[in-house]
Design a protein around this nucleic acid. Structure first.
Lengths: 217, 217
DNA sequence: CAAAAACTGTCGCAGATGTTACACAAGGAA
DNA sequence: TTCCTTGTGTAACATCTGCGACAGTTTTTG
């Protein structure tokens, strides 16, 4: 559990003794937090997983985000003026979570500097992901997004032959583009000799060109 | 100064006495932080203003963000694993700032709960803005973005006749679209009887339709 | 005040993307 | 295994958007 990393168990126990902390079980399909509901408590997944959905009033579901235990929900929005859940959080499977009211979180963080550091680190990591995605979404063309994404994957996987970390369907959704459009662009980059795609495996043939695309479009 | 709001001056003085805090002046055009430079200190603008730019290696400038005093820079990225400035920060005019090393920020926050709360509130507000922009960028069409943006403005300004809070040039950039495309869409929505635009003043004629667009596209 | 810079409004065309539809492959569940 | 769900690959066509250019207006600056 990243939030409590490096904390001696007795210290943790001492802190918890002073706080209002609830542990709860939830079942698959249960709604842990409604969209636009005020975030007045920190929900930390201990086990299980949760999906975040934005519901159109038209009934359909829009964007999706998955969160695996152990991880906090909406930690970036616990404080501030407009602190509301950006998505509806629904359990994907049975699991457990602990719930800490905002005021208790505040007290908890001021009780232990390591804990505070952990909290800030976790928040910053979420913010970084948010920022990265925003950068990706700001790119004009699908080709450009692909270039950035592939280079990023190659870096993470330390290889010029990358394996997509999600199905292309999900990747298209992540990019905010239509799936066939993404496929088409992959095909075109293959025709241009930049990559060699095979299902989820994509080899980078012309790294220089990818870098050029990522930088300049 | 939001970060130190509700803090008695003597308390503030007591805290500062224990920390490494530097005050600095900067001149117009000076670079306060390079893009991708590690964020190992908190920079708080006391006066003046700063622009954030992403530089393409091709020389041109990409996205822009403006920050006015009093406000911290890159507060969301001070902690965490990949803590680097997302943009280059350049002074738009002469001004002053205080600089606090990361470690001192940590100590400072654990010394006073009000200060901690302020810090978390400010962070959350930035995260909220980031999240809102991401949502906007995720919308497929310019028409949809406009709908969401106008409804948001109308809410903030408590009126159906809104005044754009930035030039259309800047709005197009914020949307990540070409300016003429934005103008065209405004014209079309006028032709459709949804809005009545005049320079920066835009009256909402058919709110229902706007809401429908914002929800479903 | 005058000049420069930034902003607004509009065209036409080329290119990028969305949409819908279909066929097939892969993987999981009964 | 067989069914069923999800993912992959491709095509044609309509639509949306980007781009460059230009003229006119407003705002800023010296």
């Amino acid at each position: 559990m990243p939030l409590f990393r490096s904390l001696p168990e007795e210290e943790l126990r001492r802190i918890f003794a002073e706080l209002k902390v609830t542990e709860t079980r939830f079942k698959k399909g249960e709604v842990l937090a409604m969209q636009d509901e005020p975030v007045n408590r920190l929900i930390i997944l201990l086990s299980g997983s949760v999906k975040g959905e934005m519901n159109d009033p038209s009934g359909r579901v829009a964007k999706v985000e998955d969160i695996e235990a152990p991880s906090p929900l909406a930690i970036l929005f616990l404080f501030g003026q407009h602190n509301r859940f950006p998505v509806q959080a629904t359990a994907r499977e049975d699991g457990t979570a602990i719930i800490i009211p905002r005021q208790s979180v505040l007290r908890m963080l001021s009780m232990n500097e390591t804990l505070l550091k952990n909290y800030l680190d976790i928040s910053a990591d979420f913010a970084t992901r948010l920022s990265r995605k925003l950068n990706l979404m700001s790119l004009r063309t699908i080709r450009q997004k692909l270039a950035v994404y592939l280079l990023d994957l190659a870096k993470k996987q330390h290889s010029e032959a990358v394996t997509l970390d999600r199905p292309k369907t999900a990747l298209a959704e992540y990019f905010g583009v239509a799936r066939p459009s993404l496929e088409r662009e992959i095909t075109r980059m293959e025709e241009d000799g930049i990559i060699a795609p095979l299902r989820k495996e994509i080899s980078i043939l012309d790294r220089q060109e990818l870098v050029r695309l990522a930088d300049k479009g």
